[in-house]
Design a protein around this nucleic acid. Structure first.
Lengths: 230, 230
DNA sequence: ACTAGCATACTACCATACAAGTCAAGCGGT
DNA sequence: ACCGCTTGACTTGTATGGTAGTATGCTAGT
């Protein structure tokens, strides 16, 4: 009866490596695996009752995303958040989404405007303290923009890159400014509905620059999570 | 004396997996591994006198880039070029580089302008038939733009994405339009030197849209390399 | 007490063995 | 002659063994 493992969170339908990758990625973003922490293939493998090989493949992908740093024959460490890399990622994201929203505003179908307004309504209903719920809806909003432009691939690039931003957003505690973010969403959709390409673009760019305001403060409050390089 | 392998192209200093990845990537871009061709871990491993494991890691990364498609328990195939995915990649690249060139034009230091003009001069000296040499210089030109903006990370994203475009460029035969590309480079640098942000941006965007003109023709000429979906 | 050097217990990387699924060819029955 | 099943040679995915390199702590010598 030893065949039955206690809690098998892994699906047999999909390869194990990508599943491990997603699990660890989520844990790093949510700071369950803390920046600077050392992890090892064998340790993770044992805790999931699998072999080291799929874990290794997950490590490789995480390192390409800059979430861990693997030092051969020395160890693998969860990277500390660096303000520089957050700004690097943010730059790329802004560039891509700017072109996406330009396209959406240029086409501005009634259907997408309605869908976006529906989402904003749902965002307003989120209770002040449920930050995770808002982050999910925010993610959905931006994803919907990309989908409306038919830019699924562009969104996949953003997704593969934005983890560094998500780590910071998870740490950002102030529930107050959720309201401001929703306002900005509204301004974006208004510009889209009006077909004002330029206005939509600038509205989105200011929206995505919001993180720059809170970033220094967060870095100061959680120095142990950030690397020394100011 | 059997220890001495015939031609060991792999370095011992670096992990083997990434080296295999780069080798295969180059071979796919240059159509030495032809679209639709079937490759296997064991086959590549044997030809390089290594084990399957590093080859597997290379396959995974190539599949993330869309250069191969791995079907579990069935086989791994070099993807055919799809015009849709080329256009997807091109959209992302244009978005990122547009913001890069805006920043460069906004700062427009004399030093970077001189460096870019030097490169254009070198581009003009490339003999008409040496397409590979021009592609390398073109790559360097765009890379230099990113470096001038201090956007090394943004460039790394472009690099990890542009392989699909490079495959097409390798097939594009007409040496005539090399001259036109150089002209476009000059217009970009002129706008940068003048500090004209908007002009620099549109010049770069038209430059990167050049591939759209030749793409349908190439797809028609080399139908065996492209997938059926028009 | 203190330091140099060595043994040991890690690490990630590579190679090899095993498992599970796919596909095609060939044989046997109808 | 033709169709269906079986068998075997593939494929990728996973597990495990072995290797080289690093860091740490203990021991021995001063």
């Amino acid at each position: 009866m030893q065949n039955i493992k206690p809690q098998r969170v892994l699906s047999a339908a999909e390869a194990v490596g990508p599943q491990v990758y997603r699990i660890l990625r989520e844990q790093i973003i949510q700071a369950e695996l803390t920046p600077g922490e050392r992890i090892s293939e064998a340790e993770i493998a044992k805790s999931l009752s699998i072999s080291r090989q799929p874990v290794r493949e997950a490590f490789i992908k995480l390192s390409e995303e800059g979430l861990v740093q693997v030092l051969p024959q020395r160890g693998t460490y969860v990277t500390r958040i660096s303000t520089a890399s957050v700004m690097d990622v943010r730059f790329v994201r802004e560039a891509i989404e700017a072109d996406i929203v330009r396209q959406v505003a240029g086409e501005h179908t009634a259907e997408t405007v309605r869908a976006l307004r529906d989402q904003i309504a749902r965002q307003k209903q989120v209770p002040q303290d449920d930050r995770a719920a808002f982050l999910r809806l925010d993610e959905l909003f931006h994803h919907t923009l990309a989908a409306a432009a038919g830019r699924a691939y562009a969104w996949s690039v953003i997704e593969s890159v934005k983890a560094q931003m998500d780590r910071v957003r998870f740490l950002s505690v102030d529930d107050l400014h959720i309201g401001r973010l929703i306002d900005q969403h509204e301004r974006i959709v208004d510009a889209i509905a009006a077909g004002d390409v330029g206005k939509a673009e600038t509205a989105l760019r200011t929206h995505l620059r919001e993180i720059l305001k809170s970033l220094p403060e967060i870095a100061r409050a959680r120095t142990e999570f950030f690397d020394g390089v100011a």
